[in-house]
Design a protein around this nucleic acid. Structure first.
Length: 263
DNA sequence: CCCTATGTTCCCAA
DNA sequence: CTTGGGAACATAGG
């Protein structure tokens, strides 16, 4: 469930809490996660985000990489309470512990040695250049929404933010990407930056179970324009927000404001 | 029982 | 080879 803004929120909060600290112990609670080895006793030298993945960088060129998939959550605990339901992993520090909670058990944890598996695609926060987008979309007939969510091209945008970005760019989610003009890509790039940055400032979107590192809800659910608003009035034109499936994902949009011709 | 769910990956067809 | 679509993964909630 966490998309780019949610993982970025965890990343920034984690830096405040565990930078420089040593991992004292790790415990896999759900064996489906596999094993993690060689990180006990290591010091945290940084925390970074790669798309929707979170990397806790450790001394010795190691990193602990977490991917939360649909329902994964990361919580910081510094009291002596027992494990919460659906706890899958515990990483202990001298001053508290990090727990991975994941009801649907899709989340993954891996230990990486520096130098392997750099993911493809660019980060929409750091690099969302309209002319580059125009170029890489030339030979694709994907709908724009699927394109935005394709992690091989742009890393970090999921279903909620794809819907919101396209609404703000007034773009039909089914529009084929190879038909977009440079001006239309500029609108998409601008909407992408604006929405992602606002969502990070709001500590993410809590429409169901997203919580930050300290268990608090985000605020960005109060800023949503279309996601989850099926049947409600469009804030721009007053007509009804629709929901249809696109590649199996619920897609919310305003048929009036997001028309096929764009611009 | 039905359907839905913020994600990724694998398999298959074109 | 590439591209794109759907099922699968596992579980909770309406």
């Amino acid at each position: 469930m966490p998309e780019l803004p949610e993982v970025e929120t965890l990343c920034r909060q984690l830096r405040q809490v565990i930078a420089g600290a040593k991992i004292t112990k790790t415990r896999i609670v759900d064996s489906k996660l596999g094993t993690i080895e060689g990180i006990e006793g290591k010091q945290v030298c940084g925390v970074n985000r790669h798309g929707k993945a979170l990397a806790i960088e450790l001394e010795g060129d190691l990193s602990l990489v977490l991917h939360f998939r649909m329902t994964g959550r990361l919580l910081w605990q510094n009291n002596g309470n027992g494990l919460l339901p659906h706890t899958r992993l515990v990483v202990s520090f001298p001053h508290g512990r990090l727990v991975l909670i994941d009801p649907r058990r899709f989340a993954t944890v891996t230990v990486h040695k520096k130098g392997n598996s750099l993911p493809l695609g660019s980060d929409p926060l750091a690099d969302c250049d309209p002319s580059r987008l125009l170029e890489i979309a030339q030979h694709s007939t994907l709908p724009i929404k699927s394109f935005l969510m394709d992690q091989r091209r742009l890393r970090g945008i999921g279903n909620i933010y794809a819907c919101e970005i396209l609404y703000h760019a007034r773009m039909d989610p089914w529009r084929k990407v190879n038909s977009l003009s440079l001006d239309e890509w500029k609108e998409i790039a601008e909407a992408t930056g604006k929405i992602l940055i606002r969502a990070i400032a709001c500590r993410g979107t809590s429409v169901s179970d997203w919580r930050d590192l300290f268990g608090r809800e985000g605020e960005h659910q109060n800023c949503l324009s279309v996601y989850g608003r099926e049947g409600a009035a469009c804030y721009s034109c007053g007509k009804e927000i629709k929901r249809k499936k696109l590649n199996g994902r619920g897609t919310y949009y305003c048929p009036t404001c997001q028309h096929a011709e764009g611009g």
